[in-house]
């Protein structure tokens, strides 16, 4: 049964491939075979390395993204919150701020 199912899938693919190999009008060229499809010429290698500074930026952004996610419900429910919840939230925010201050002082936000 599985064999029939596999053949059912593969046969049209193989037939299409054979059809293309025999009948397709092939006209290759340097422009046509270029990797980039935006109309612009590709420059340099595809295996480029990204600056490590970008990684740090991304991490710092992610931290604040998550923090904003928590800050919004915190702000909405602010007036009804018990003291314990406010203190817990303050600790959470201060932990993040501490990390932010550390990253800032380390010069992570300065692009070089």
């Amino acid at each position: 049964m599985g064999l029939v199912a596999a053949a059912f899938c593969l046969t049209p693919l193989v037939l299409a491939r054979l059809w293309a190999a025999w009948f397709s009008p092939r006209k290759p060229g340097a422009e046509k075979n270029a990797a980039y499809e935006c109309g612009l010429e590709s420059r340099g290698e595809a295996w480029v390395q990204f600056h490590a500074g970008y990684y740090l930026y991304a991490i710092v952004f992610l931290i604040f993204d998550v923090e904003a996610l928590f800050l919004l419900p915190f702000a909405v429910a602010f007036t009804q919150l018990p003291t314990g919840a406010v203190v817990a939230m303050l600790v959470f925010v201060l932990l993040l701020v501490e990390g932010f201050v550390w990253a800032w002082r380390k010069g992570v936000l300065r692009w070089q």
Binding site: P25, K27, E31, A34, E37, G39
Partner: peptide
């Protein structure tokens, strides 16, 4: 114009 011509070149025949 160069982008348009390059895109045309990248299209398969017909």
């Amino acid at each position: 114009a160069p982008m348009v011509v390059r895109l045309y070149n990248q299209m398969p025949e017909p």
